[in-house]
């Protein structure tokens, strides 16, 4: 589904990703962990098409398509979803009409009929219950004045409504209280199927108690320096990253 090969990416001449390779198959959940500044969000942004990154070499294919050549909105319509580490506040754009527009763009792209206001409302009400989000947040501008946790729930609500094939969750668990964490994880587990996949970026092993990953990768200095299973996360929790970093040379 997603195949990243030896990806080198820089920002303003500064190399951030230094030969990253990752393969994600349908039905899988991959967790990515790693120290602050190691390039996790950069990877998520490059995959979703944010401007400002230079791909120096390597490739990223999604469903056989050359991801790096696609406009961000086309990636989204093809089923890629990024839950932002820092969701953006958009004053004046109503949360519901934004999400309806997004869903209908995706449906149009898939050759499906657009949903009218009533059908959409039915769908969104159902998904809101899933993430236990307060209804008044729907009437507010996108993320504006939302608390940190409300913003993260809103990301998961969007994910639930847009029903992506590949979802990248960038520290969706950071800033969540334990109940919210359970709800967000519940949302992911509900959506989980044989045909879709998740890449979950996190600093905390506890999320992985709720969302059980098939693989855990450690990203350091723009490369995956170790991959393993769920047990790796437990080990990291106990020992930190130092023991891994010492064993690897940092590329110059």
């Amino acid at each position: 589904m997603l195949s990243i090969k030896d990806l080198h990416v820089s920002v303003e001449e500064k190399p951030i990703l230094n030969g990253l390779t990752l393969d994600v198959k349908p039905g899988e959940i991959h967790a990515i962990m790693g120290p602050n500044g190691s390039g996790k969000s950069t990877l998520a942004h490059v995959l979703s098409g944010r401007a400002g990154y230079t791909v120096n070499s390597g490739s990223a294919h999604y469903k056989g398509l050359n991801l790096l050549e696609m406009a961000p909105e086309i990636r989204a319509r093809e089923g890629l979803f990024l839950a932002f580490q820092y969701p953006i506040e958009i004053p004046g754009v109503n949360n519901t009409s934004f999400l309806k527009k997004a869903l209908n763009e995706i449906r149009k792209h898939r050759g499906e009929e657009e949903l009218d206001a009533i059908d959409f409302l039915g769908l969104i009400k159902k998904q809101m219950a899933l993430v236990e989000m307060k209804e008044d947040l729907l009437r507010r501008p996108v993320n504006q004045g939302f608390s940190g946790g409300e913003k993260k729930r809103n990301e998961i609500l969007q994910m639930a409504v847009l029903n992506p094939t590949l979802a990248i969750l960038d520290e969706t668990d950071s800033g969540l209280d334990i109940d919210a964490l359970r709800i967000v994880a519940g949302g992911v587990n509900k959506l989980r199927s044989e045909s879709n996949a998740f890449v979950v970026i996190t600093h905390y092993q506890r999320l992985l108690d709720y969302i059980v990953p098939d693989f855990v990768h450690v990203l350091s200095n723009g490369r995956i320096i170790k991959s393993g299973t769920k047990e790796l996360a437990l080990e990291l929790e106990e020992r930190g990253y130092d023991w891994l970093l010492e064993k690897t040379e940092t590329p110059s």
């Binding site: 979703s48 098409g49 944010r50 401007a51 406009a71 961000p72 909105e73 990636r75 989204a76 319509r77 979803f81 990024l82 932002f84 969701p87 953006i88 958009i90 004053p91 004046g92 754009v93 934004f98 999400l99 527009k101 997004a102 869903l103 763009e105 995706i106 792209h109 501008p141 996108v142 969007q158 847009l162």
Partner: peptide
Amino acid sequence: FYLQSRGISQADAALMLTRAF
């Protein structure tokens, strides 16, 4: 970018933001 990342074209996103303004 946030709007685009949800499937909304750049032109539509610009229109939405301007109208919101």
